[in-house]
Amino acid sequence: MNRKLINGLLILIAIAIVVIISTDFIGNKAGQNKSNPYEYNIEAFKQVDSAKVLYNEVTTFPVLADQLSGIAVSDSSVVVAAGNKLLQFNFIGEEIFRKPIIDTATCITMDGKKNVWIGMRHFVAAYDLNGTLIKRWKSFDERSVITSLAVSGDQIFVADAGNRVVYKCNRDGLIIARIGEKNEQKGVPGYVIPSPYFDLAIDNSGFLWVVNPGRQSLENYNADGSLRTSWGVAGMKIEGFSGCCNPAQMTIMDDNSFVTSEKGMPRIKLYGQHGELKGIVAPPDLFDAGSYYAPDVAVDASNKIYALDFARKQVRIFKMK
């Protein structure tokens, strides 16, 4: 009797050992998800009050391209710079054309004459709405990294992250003024640009707004290049701009509200003209887990917001509820 009991116990122990070893072996295999005690956890900041979400996502369409650079919207179409191609879509996402451009695009905007201005790394080129090259500027310099463009009448504002300056140019690329360089006499603190995210836009009154990404703020300049005002607060909470280089993208609506888009924890928000948070356009949970890039944003005449989602390779359109 005793012998049978001992044998049974030994068999049970043997089975338990085999189970433990196999579980450990299978559980530790590459590709298995295990809890990480050192996890960089920002989940709490991704939760937002749904009452603050002012927009619904109404349309989505794919952009079939390897590399996406930026988006702009006119009253008749959506244009996307995708690597060394220019793509045009109608508002339901049908591709009208895709045409080669002379270099890899870094940013894109449209002017009132429906010309498409595209920033390349060192220079700027202009195309008509059929994708025909109409202008190519000379390169600024080797250090230049053009990250954003805005057009106001006959003036083109060019953000150069490499040289930490905004150029005010005429339509032929002649530099009329350099804006935002550190100048203690004028009270201009200078741009802090840790990475190539350096966006700008023109408001409804014709004033230039430039993101100062290292200071997590937006700065407003007079025509003579002096600093007029600025706003912005750093922070992971919904009112703030999270981490370095945010807001990585922004645009301005007709009523001078700001649409901002952040990297790291992608989220799109709407701020009033004095920098007060009005609400959320796209909360973080609308973006794929592990997606770092800030969607580029554009606004159409009906105040719909267009987000170019670099992770999903989609244009996502948001309309106020």
Binding site: I42, F45, G214, Q216, A234, M236
Partner: peptide, 29 residues
């Protein structure tokens, strides 16, 4: 490659109390 940021995501905890070297603000365990 470093941006030498004041608000460094690698050094400071998400939403730190202050951008200082105080232990409670540091991300590194």
């Amino acid at each position: 490659l470093c941006g030498y940021c004041d608000l460094c995501g690698g050094y400071l905890k998400p939403d730190p109390n202050a951008r200082t070297t105080a232990a409670e603000n540091q991300l590194c365990p």
